[in-house]
Structures are given as C-alpha cells and as structure tokens.
C-alpha cells in the first residue's frame, strides 16, 4: 500500500467520522420514503412494534442512557462508523488476501 493510499484512506475516514459525529445530529427526523408511504397507505402497522432481533446495543442510532439526543446520536455515529470500517476491512482482507 503506497503512502498516498494511506493518506486517502485517512482523509476518507476523517470525513466519514465528521459526518457521523457532527452532522448526524442535524439529520431530518421525518419518516423516510418507505416509512412515509407505509403511513400514508395504511400498512405501517404491519411492521412489528419491536423487531425480531432485540439485542441491538444502540437501537435507533441513539446511544442508550444519554439524555442529550444530539450527543447520543453523535456517539452512535462514531461507534457505527468505526465498527463498519473494521468489519469491512477484515472481511475484505479475508476475501482478497492471496496465499
């Protein structure tokens, strides 16, 4: 990996973290396209109140136990972005590395 690629990776990760930590608290909380259609067309109640998987550590992008909504979202963004880069990197490594 050239030094230049390292710089690129670093910059990209910083941009992702800035988005996830500092911009995400300002995201619109309106329902998204599918949710809105489900509400308007009267099938939103078919969604299970609680999902089948109930072990999510950070449900709905709000780190639990933090009163300040913006901070709870920012921490969720930070953790999610780091977890995703680690998992993505590891899986790519498993697939691509040739012996």
């Amino acid at each position: 990996m050239g030094n230049n690629v390292k710089t690129f990776i670093f910059i990209s990760l910083i941009v992702a973290l800035i988005l996830a930590i500092f911009i995400s608290p300002f995201a619109s909380s309106s329902p998204d396209g599918l949710e809105k259609v489900a509400e308007d067309k009267g099938f939103i109640e078919k969604a299970l109140e609680e999902g089948v998987w109930r072990l999510s550590p950070i449900p709905d992008y709000a780190f639990p136990g933090i009163g300040n909504e913006a901070i709870a979202t920012a921490i969720a963004g930070l953790i999610g972005t780091l977890i995703t880069v680690i998992i993505g990197w590891l899986i790519a490594k498993l697939i691509i590395i040739k012996k």
Binding site: S12, A16, T84, V85, I87, W89, A92
Partner: peptide, 12 residues
C-alpha cells in the same frame, strides 16, 4: 482498506 473505508463512509 478502500473497501473498509467506503463501507464506513456509506454508513455515516
């Protein structure tokens, strides 16, 4: 690393 960082960017 590009795969990892692209995934992270998309998540964010």
């Amino acid at each position: 690393p590009l795969l990892g960082v692209t995934a992270a960017f998309i998540f964010a």
